[in-house]
């Protein structure tokens, strides 16, 4: 995407942000609260309309497309405030993702590689595979409404994978996970990227971001204040002052 600007009334939430994610790359997006990270996600997937700038998916300009059209081009996401289908069970959540995908043409190949399938699995098998891969196998029939936040986030991820995206936007996927789970999750992300998925990761767990991301972008007051390799970012004074604090 490039030069994205978003305004809410008088408040400018994003100013001229440009950012790219390559195939198989994990890009971290960090920044203080209210910096505009979630807004950027919303702009990318068409939930808010930027007042300027454009969004491209695999080279194609999608700025004028609806949310669902963008999704069909291979864009998947999770939400900071959970948007699970809480009246359905864990497996039905993922199943809905798979079934919706089946109603349109299949495209993203990367998730398929990750799942090591030939792409034409029966729905049930695909759902089981995803659940198992995310370690949710034992919870298949649990209603999502009664899951702890951390697991519900994994369900969202599973649902998004069911749509076989090629780019995945993750908004604080690890909040609610404990330390060992976060470590597992980090490995999961690396695996996904290894299968060719491009991932844009928003997270306040700086440790995780520094571990898994090849490239980090720091947002403050709606603009990019720093970007580069983890070490570069960590050393950047502006970032330390605005976000990390002296403690880290």
């Amino acid at each position: 995407m490039s030069g994205v600007t978003v305004r809410f009334g008088g408040h400018q939430a994003l100013t001229d942000v440009s950012l790219g994610v390559d195939e198989g790359q994990i890009v971290g997006l960090i920044g203080p609260n209210g910096a505009g990270k979630t807004t950027l996600f919303n702009a990318v997937c068409g939930v808010v309309t930027p007042s300027a700038g454009s969004v491209r998916i695999m080279g194609r300009d999608v700025s004028n497309l609806n949310t669902h059209r963008r999704a069909r081009l291979g864009l998947g996401r999770t939400f900071q405030r959970l948007e699970v289908f809480s009246s359905l069970t864990v497996s039905d959540n993922v199943r809905v993702g798979v079934e919706i995908r089946q109603t349109w043409e299949r495209r993203g190949t990367t998730a398929r590689q990750f799942l090591a399938t030939d792409g034409n699995l029966p729905v049930d098998a695909e759902v089981d595979l995803i659940l198992e891969r995310l370690g949710l196998g034992g919870l298949a029939d649990v209603p999502v409404g009664s899951l702890p936040t951390g697991q519900a986030r994994l369900v969202e991820l599973g649902r998004a994978l069911g749509a076989r995206p090629s780019v995945l936007l993750l908004d604080e996927p690890a909040s609610g996970l404990d330390d060992p789970e976060t470590a597992d999750f980090g490995r999961l992300l690396t695996d996904l990227a290894g299968a060719g998925l491009g991932i844009l990761l928003v997270e306040h767990d700086v440790g995780l971001v520094m571990d898994v991301c090849e490239h980090i972008c720091v947002l403050d007051f709606g603009s990019v204040i720093a970007s580069g390799d983890p070490e570069v970012v960590r050393a950047n004074e502006a970032v330390v002052a605005a976000y990390l604090g002296a403690g880290t």
């Binding site: 203080p32 900071q80 936040t149 909040s175 306040h204 700086v206 990390l244 604090g245 403690g247």
Partner: peptide
């Protein structure tokens, strides 16, 4: 309950 969830490290401190 999980006060720090979703907050930047600075704010948590």
């Amino acid at each position: 309950d999980e006060l720090s969830m979703g907050l930047a490290p600075l704010v948590v401190e």
